[in-house]
Simulated scan of single mutants.
Amino acid sequence: MIQAVILDWAGTVLDHGSRAPMAAFVKAFAHFGVEISIADARGPMGMAKRDHIRLVGRAVNDAWRAKHGHDFNEADMEAIFAVFEPLNVAAVKTAEHSTLIAGAREALEWCKARGIRIGSTTGYTRPIMEELAPLAAAQGFSPEVMVCAGDLAAGRPAPLQMWYAMASMGIWPANTVVKCDDTPPGIGEARNAGCWAVGFALSGNIAGLSEAEMAWASEAEKAEMRARATAELLEAGAHLVVDSIADLPAAITAIQARMARGETP
């Protein structure tokens, strides 16, 4: 049966809509005279932040060249990262971006009661997580392991963070582990590691709404967001997609039923 759940952070366990990095990305590029949209910023979400900046830079390369007289390059990426990281650190320290998503505590307790262990990986860097992790711990989220972007040679969708987390926890085989994420790179990380992949549709980056904004959305609007996010996450390889971490117990139960029928990731 399932031995462990490896959780992403923003948009999965806390920061409904994964909103903390958005303004930081926009402000960081604006610092260098290039405007990017929220859609530009959200595109590669889930990847390590240097990889994320690299891809956004390539996407807006024409505007970058017009402003700076050369194509976006690695030195530009590092310069933007140096501006971005402190902005993201400041953002995650606010209650708006550090509060657990509704149902998280109950889902974690459900896992604990069944002996299912909890680990985590994240696209955030360790300096960001050094600020965010204590805020999450005060609310009851303290995973056994926290593997950050930059800890290993490659980030998502490479499986290295997942393998490191499982090795640190002493958990194997990979087909007894569920990875939960709200982004395609995070789902890819799970599949490449040989684990079950569960996508979160409404709490994460693809929907992009805060908990309050989601509460104001009509059922038709929620259905449209759910359908779009589900399609993207399934295309990335998710074995199933649910709305949020509140649905984790149901997702694990469904996966264990599939395992009982002989299915594997």
Results as ranks from 00 to 15, higher is better:
P143T: 12
A167R: 15
A104E: 01
G262Q: 14
V56K: 04
L233S: 06
E263D: 15
I206E: 00
S168D: 09
I128D: 00
A79E: 00
E224Y: 00
E74I: 14
G69K: 13
A66T: 13
P157R: 08
E96Q: 15
N88A: 04
A193Y: 05
G115A: 12
D151Y: 13
N175I: 01
R58P: 02
E144K: 06
N192W: 04
G155V: 10
S18I: 04
M214V: 08
A231P: 12
F32Y: 14
G115F: 13
M259L: 15
G69P: 10
M214C: 08
E263C: 11
E130H: 03
N192Q: 10
P173W: 06
A217V: 12
D76E: 04
M214Q: 14
D62M: 03
S168C: 14
P249S: 01
A217E: 14
I128S: 00
G115K: 09
E74L: 10
E96M: 13
R258C: 12
I80G: 06
A90W: 06
V178H: 01
F200G: 01
A220C: 10
V242E: 09
L14Y: 10
G262Y: 15
A82F: 09
P265N: 13
F81M: 15
M1S: 10
A197W: 02
G57D: 09
N88C: 02
W172E: 12
I128V: 14
S37P: 05
P134H: 04
C148D: 03
Q139S: 11
A82D: 13
V198G: 00
T125F: 08
A165H: 01
G155L: 07
W216G: 10
L248Q: 02
E74D: 15
L234F: 10
A217I: 06
F29S: 01
I245T: 02
A82L: 09
G46S: 05
L234T: 09
R191H: 13
V56W: 07
M166T: 00
A231M: 10
A133E: 07
L209Q: 09
A174Q: 07
T176Q: 14
E131Q: 11
S120H: 09
L108V: 05
E130R: 04
I206D: 02
W110R: 00
A82G: 07
A28F: 03
S98H: 04
A82M: 00
T264G: 08
I2V: 15
E96D: 13
K49S: 09
R258F: 11
A167D: 07
L233N: 07
R19H: 07
A167W: 05
M214P: 03
G150A: 08
A165L: 03
A153L: 12
E85N: 08
M146F: 08
S244K: 06
P159D: 07
T94V: 06
M162L: 14
S218T: 14
A149I: 06
A250R: 13
H239M: 07
I80A: 11
A28V: 02
E232T: 12
T176P: 02
P86K: 07
M22Q: 14
S244P: 04
